[in-house]
Design a protein around this nucleic acid. Structure first.
Length: 362
DNA sequence: AAATCGGGGTG
DNA sequence: CACCCAGATTT
């Protein structure tokens, strides 16, 4: 932390003056924080799991998933022993399914190489699949009381405003990290981290920040400016493309034809109805029939409309037109990736949200 | 540095 | 609808 040159620059003086009042924040946090299911948990496994689930996901969404998961898998060894399909069912609907795959991989490593104990060192933790700088710092500070500041979206926004840093460049993020390292207390560093994140969630919100309720507004550069909301500068994103898919609800003697997606692609390991992307806007029945026959290598005797669902992903959106298909008795499937399963047992397989929309409208 | 990866919430 | 979110990983 020391400066090799024996003088401080004006910039560094400025930073040192900007140290957060950790105790004020923690005091605010103790009083105002929401009653989260993750509070008062000491088990490093549970803290780790909650941090993984909370990546890009709101607290209220996570809570029921977290509680169900803990009940089913009380320890890290239970996760290591489990089949990935069962874990995915517990993760079903939460999104970012790679988190689940990675958590499973990491649990096996911890079970086999660390005797089921969550590592307490940065260097070991950071190498585990699914653990980046945020999660490593969160686990080390919250579970083990170590002085590692977290830097997530909330913290970046709070610090951008507090320091009056508009652009979150790599260099400015380093500056923010330096202030956090100077501010984080040796006592309860995890509470310090959570207090800033909670401040970002409840007070220092992206839009319409409630500076009048903020414990540090009197020393916050953005709050003292005319437009605190303009910090940090937002990067605008282009609009997402839209795709049309047709999907085949192929039933035979109460059996659904479903397909398991490749592990390393989007929604990997989840199951789906056979579907095809189409460019053609004219969705006539002969066209649908021909397309399904060509793509699925089957002979469709009869098709009828079933339902149409729309779904938005972060980087594209889809409209999926579903068709009931009849095939002849002799016509049994396809290649190794396709399987017939019982309709009643469809809940034994994990599906993405868009398929739940379809199943709900059948 | 930028793209990828789900889903839910807000204004 | 546009935009945001308690990020990690790959390219």
């Amino acid at each position: 932390m020391g400066n090799p040159k024996n003088k401080t620059t004006a910039k560094e003086d400025c930073i040192v003056q900007s140290i957060l009042q950790a105790q004020d924040l923690i005091k605010w946090y103790d009083k105002e924080k929401r009653d989260l299911a993750f509070r008062d948990i000491q088990d490093p496994y549970k803290i780790w799991l909650s941090e993984i689930m909370l990546q890009q996901t709101k607290v209220d969404t996570v809570i029921p998933y977290f509680q169900k998961w803990i009940k089913k898998y009380p320890t890290i060894k239970d996760v290591a022993k489990a089949e990935i399909t069962d874990l995915l069912i517990s993760w079903e609907g939460l999104g970012y399914y790679r988190r689940c795959h990675n958590f499973h991989k990491a649990s096996k490593i911890i079970s086999q190489e660390h005797g089921g104990q969550i590592p307490t060192s940065w260097d070991i933790l950071i190498k585990l699949p699914g653990i980046g700088e945020y999660t490593a710092a969160a686990v080390l500070s919250i579970a083990f009381g170590k002085k590692f500041p977290v830097l997530d979206g909330n913290v970046k926004r709070v610090m951008s405003r507090f320091l009056g840093i508009k652009v979150l460049s790599v260099n400015n993020l380093k500056k923010i990290k330096k202030v956090l390292n100077l501010s984080i207390p040796a006592k309860n560093p995890g509470d310090f981290n959570q207090s800033i994140m909670e401040l970002g969630a409840l007070i220092c919100s992206p839009r319409k920040p409630k500076c009048f309720k903020c414990p540090i507004s009197s020393i916050c550069k953005a709050a003292l400016s005319s437009n605190p909301e303009s910090y940090p500068k937002k990067t605008k994103k282009g609009k997402v493309p839209h795709f049309t898919l047709i999907s085949c609800i192929l039933k035979k003697d109460n059996l659904f034809l479903i397909h398991k997606r490749e592990k390393n692609m989007m929604l990997g390991g989840l199951w789906e109805l056979p579907n095809v992307k189409v460019e053609n806007k004219l969705l006539t029945k002969p066209f649908i029939k021909k397309t399904l026959e060509k793509e699925l290598k089957i002979k469709v005797k009869n098709i009828s409309n079933s339902c149409t669902v729309k779904h938005s992903y972060s980087h594209f959106s889809v409209t999926m037109h579903c068709f009931n298909c009849e095939i002849s008795n002799s016509e049994i499937i396809l290649d190794d990736n396709y399987n017939w399963i019982l309709k009643k047992d469809i809940s034994k397989y994990p599906f993405s949200k868009v398929h739940h929309k379809i199943f709900n409208s059948l």
